[in-house]
Design a protein around this nucleic acid. Structure first.
Lengths: 208, 208, 208, 208
DNA sequence: TATGAATGAGCATTCATTCAT
DNA sequence: GATGAATGAATGCTCATTCAT
């Protein structure tokens, strides 16, 4: 029996939407500033300025909060990448990748802790919980990116490359905001991330 | 006031050492197979076949188990890298990196879930917990690697490169055992990881 | 870092106040009838007919129960003494002391065991516990008493006398309800206590 | 079924006696310096420099430690009073009482905390525990004192007076070492205690 | 709808006591 | 006798969730 994690009901009135919004903002705030230990439904409700009961009116359980936040973040990333791939937005692969990296860094800069915690909480759900796919398939996005700039991509196995690039960018963006090397500006980190990706994509892969 | 997480007492008798070992094995097993939610001291003791009391005889609290496991893993990784860098072990940078990647993949293959969970639990400790540094500084290792093969390294900022490489390898190794792309063998993933690293290190970085 | 022992939240609704009251009554009952060993938060909640959770809603920890009970008792004693010292209440020192002793005996008669246990538990708090002063300073009360009836008091060191009287009355009242001598009625004990105090205060103290 | 609290076995060899002694000294030390919370059999054994097993060789359970310490203290008090009442030791009642008070103060001065804690622990034993009477009956002692100096005693009910005196002295001696008034020397406290007792005994009691 | 008091299963941790060595 | 590793029942406390008002 799967546990429901989708929002309990769609808020239709403006007031309800405001409540849902307040709860999600509070959830993110608690996760970011107080850590996952403090992330209790009562605390979130308190920070949101509503009662626990109201929280449960819109979210069937605690996990639903995580799912909602995760989903939001996924959509934001989707937008970032979509913008970078918009028709005619960027002439070269490097420019496109740079745009994506810049967008992701910006999206993670404000609440770095949040995204690390979110990721783990989301991953540690019971198998029984059917975390609905948010419709954001990063693979697809990266594949689109590689296809669109196929001329500049030398790697033989494009699917494998998409896997490597997706995980590399994700990890380096997180590292950039959570454990940046001493004394480097964000621009330098952005450059390094782009370099890693570009060097890989531009050079013919080892015969194997 | 820091929370102690170091081992409570050094087991001297053979019996005690066996107990400590059983507890750590059980802790890893629970984390791997039952997830962090099931990771309770009572459950760990049960799986280890000892009483909770015995667990607390050697570990001052639950976090100490995480620290011990994390520490063990850190030492193992240290060994893997150390071996790959041993004098005359590998002639080229590619061979050295491949050896490291192969060793890390092997070390993560058996209990992939464990390492993901471990990482998060370790990271989510309170500030108050003084997690002792395990003495394993991956930066230093990577820097050593780059220095030793300086001739093959083109990147201008070697420190920044060490940061990028360390995080990239770490992330891709984890991804390889946790979310591998469909139908690729481990050898192919190893190759891709090495390619990402090598391409980056071998190509002159963007002026920036 | 002090341990908080003050009430966690002020009960506002009538229902909450009833709960708090039930918990305190249960706490006193358990202490009195089952002893300090049985004084567990679960037991108190059970006797109060509420869940442990409710107990913790109003008392941050077990010690807070002791503090609350101690505080209550202190206020009651304060009232007893205050009444005995009210303007024009008693013409002579003997009458005033007798009124105080009578009031204290009455206040301790119902739950003698409770007050003994309470006293020890309260005294045995960790240094770290910041037991708030209940505002009941018996010294001050006794000093007031002696000052008001200064004409009948012969002791040279009035401060010292206050110390002696306070501790004597306290001890004898407790002894009267906990370990009374065989076959004496309460009136006789009251008389003896008053005699001890009066004789001391009325007779010029030894030169020393 | 009563719980045994008497010493488990009489140590006959010198070594055993030394062990028992070490354990009791350690018990007193822990109670005095670390409080009743820290008073665990393991801690006592550790401080005594023996193993828990050895502790249980001589004391059937934790309570037996309390009983033994209580017993020791009782015997010491008995000796103090006995000395003060020895034939021809003191000519007047005041001198005898002063000797008793001085002896008791001295006996409590070193480990004041110990005696407070001891008293409560001893009192809070389960009914089921048959704490053996140590043979020290303070009433008898005080009655002997009053009888011997009958000429100076004016109180009508000598039994009642013994009760009052015994409890008063006990309480004031404890208060003198635990909560002495500011700036008074021990001599002054001793004087005050003697004054309280003497004034009471010397003055004809109220008709009642 | 909103509230927040109430619930109680569950978890980390302690400690008196035993017993194999 | 002595040791100290092992035991496990018991305790203080938390927090997701419910439901009467």
């Amino acid at each position: 029996m799967d546990k429901r994690v989708d929002a309990r009901k769609q808020p239709r009135q403006a007031r309800s939407q405001a409540t849902v919004e307040a709860i999600l903002v509070a959830a993110a705030r608690v996760l970011e500033r107080e850590g996952s230990r403090a992330f209790t439904t009562n605390r979130v409700a308190e920070v949101a300025g509503v009662s626990v009961g109201s929280l449960y009116q819109y979210f069937p359980n605690k996990e639903a909060l995580i799912v909602a936040l995760h989903d939001r973040h996924g959509r934001a990333m989707h937008r970032v990448i979509g913008d970078a791939l918009a028709d005619g937005a960027h002439a070269t692969l490097r420019e496109a990748v740079a745009a994506v990296v810049r967008g992701m860094l910006a999206a993670h800069a404000d609440e770095p802790e949040l995204h690390r915690v979110l990721e783990h909480e989301y991953a540690s759900f019971d198998e029984r919980t059917s975390a609905p796919d948010t419709g954001f398939d990063i693979y697809r996005e990266v594949r689109r990116l590689l296809r669109r700039h196929a001329g500049e991509v030398r790697v033989a196995d494009r699917e494998l490359a998409a896997w490597a690039v997706a995980h590399t960018v994700h990890a380096l963006v997180h590292a950039a905001v959570l454990e940046p090397p001493r004394r480097r500006r964000r621009g330098a980190l952005e450059g390094a991330i782009v370099d890693v990706v570009l060097a890989y994509l531009a050079v013919p892969s080892t015969s194997r």
